[in-house]
Design a protein around this nucleic acid. Structure first.
Lengths: 207, 207, 207, 207
DNA sequence: AATGAATGAGTCTTCATTCAT
DNA sequence: CATGAATGAAGACTCATTCAT
């Protein structure tokens, strides 16, 4: 009975993932609103009704994808690497994770999710609670240490705003790339380094 | 006949604007997809069918709003002020325009438009062609001059990337605010100054 | 403008009736739940969506039919005839109206409506408020006069219960006929007379 | 083997009853059509599919409930009591059984069943064959004796119609009560006596 | 015999768009 | 040009029923 239930749960979990990945493909291709539940069902190789055994409604698929994305975004950063990093290294690391992760493969899905986040309150809240908020919190911790001088604590508000500048930079660059800016696309890999220089040293010195 | 046509054109133009502004209100309130053409018609005080005398279809309303937004975004910057500005002043000005303009009133509509831009190719292209592209071009011109030393031209690619960092910063900060970050909301007015400092001098000196 | 609106209203009213009569036919034939909105639309010769220009939803069609039935049930009784009737005549009249009206043509529709009235609170309330309640009130007025002796008023509660017995009798007989009782079907026309005898004189004398 | 089969049959019968009672609760609460097979399964504490081991389909549940109701309606009347009753006593007894039984607890279920009987031919036939028909037959027997004078048989058609009047009265009163008539609800217990008086002596004398 | 996940046909309802007036 | 009733395609979702385990 124990075992049986566990097996069933495993199957159910697999099926859920299977549907979710199908939804990711379909939504990435056609967008959320133009996609039909039937599209997702077909892509997942299940019947229409089966979708509703795993998700309450069409929107829940999107929420599920947000969860998937969150899971993947976690654990991108290696705490050991962070420990020994100086300010520039820290900045570079903070930037490079999301820039690499979100832009490469999942940009299509990212577009769909951001699109709904903009407009759907529940998506927005979850996005902030699961992804953006934690990322900001982590950043504040990291940079508050790095920015504090010996015996002098960094201004917490200023630190928080700087972290928001960093994360904003990431978001904004991804958006611009997604919107078709070719310069960004072709220099994407250099960005973490360039930006770290810029942010640490400033434009004046950076030149 | 001349006059008559002109009057007619004026009326038509007015009616178009009237519909567009109704669409702005409606879309801002409910989002694009949940809003119906009838909603817009009612808000504009016209019949459903009348909408189609001025706009090809529902999507054209959104394109029209993008145009409206573009018009308003132009002429925000005063060329005279720019001329005498140093690097920090320039940065501050470049940031403050959009931050003030887009965040205050029109944030709802901005959300709707960005949402569709993410997902709708035609919207994306126009957004880039009308708004983002020109803004980047202008920025490149401005900063290329400011960053060039005497007798030495600034690296154009580096300049372009820096400009994209600036505009990305703007976009990303607006997004984060729109997503409900309270710290940004309460310190919004200080941002242009703080960011200008940060970007010009860097974090190291900025502390 | 006046005239135009009036014409439009007339058209709308006609269309409403047209749909309602189609619904009556369809529901009478297949029952309410098995009938689809499309069935009604086809029977009415309109598109599916047109139904929803005149009725909020499928249930509203049934409510509409209840209204139709109510209208027809009114004005069945001629006040002049009632005035001069004695107790037996009154009873006979009170019975014969509904028995003739509801059983003949509209028995199919009556079945559908009663079926939903049994189960649907809103239908039940309306049925009572529009049909049964008024019929009881009218009966109480009529019989309170007829049952009062000279200088002595009839007991109002007893009168009210007797009226409910009469109306209950009507309802119950219709139901039994509708359920297929052949004896009732073949003697339907004699019922008002027979029942009036029974009720006025009692079984003991009636024999 | 014998015993085993018997035990199995007992279990099966129990399970059947268990499901049927669950269905009674569910249907009484939500009505037949709005209830799902899953609702019934949950209320019975079994899996969806189990229902179909005991009932052919959803409708069979309702037919089963009709059977349940029939069983309970039988044996309500005590033949011994009937034997010595005069016309008034007989009438009172004939009325009081159903009025007490159907109105008290099972009125919800009664509503659901009548609702379907109105609309579903098979239900209608069974209802007539199992419940109404036998009740009429029994009444005809009882009253034919009571109404016959010495050496003179009562007119069978007249008797049959009178019995139908009685049963119709019952049905109609229950319906009116179920529809929310408060006077009936508050005087329900007096009905058998009052009605017996009315029917035996007539309104004229009854006053 | 019990389970409950899978099925997919079926329905209501919405809404962008058209067009006769 | 304005109107708004009519259209009908489209889609989310439900749920009775089946069947492999």
């Amino acid at each position: 009975m124990e075992a049986k239930r566990t097996v069933q749960e495993a199957v159910a979990s697999t099926r859920r993932t299977q549907i979710l990945e199908a939804a990711a493909r379909v939504f990435a291709e056609k967008g959320f609103h133009p996609s039909t539940v039937r599209d997702v069902a077909k892509a997942a190789g299940v019947a229409d009704g089966t979708i509703y055994n795993y998700f309450e409604n069409k929107s829940a698929l999107l929420l599920g994808l947000l969860g998937l994305m969150t899971e993947r975004a976690q654990g991108q950063v290696d705490p050991a690497t962070l420990a020994g990093a100086d300010l520039r290294g820290l900045t570079r690391l903070y930037l490079s994770g999301p820039l690499e992760a979100l832009s490469a493969d999942h940009s299509e899905l990212f577009r769909v999710i951001v699109s709904e986040v903009m407009v759907n309150p529940e998506m927005r809240e979850r996005f902030y609670a699961q992804l953006l908020g934690p990322m900001l919190k982590a950043g504040e911790g990291m940079f508050s240490r790095a920015l504090s001088g010996p015996g002098q604590l960094a201004d917490p508000v200023r630190t928080a705003l700087q972290v928001r500048a960093l994360s904003g930079l990431i978001l904004g660059l991804i958006l611009q790339r997604v919107m078709g800016d070719e310069l960004l696309a072709s220099h994407w890999d250099e960005l973490p380094d360039q930006l770290a220089d810029l942010l640490v040293n400033g434009m004046a010195r950076h030149t």
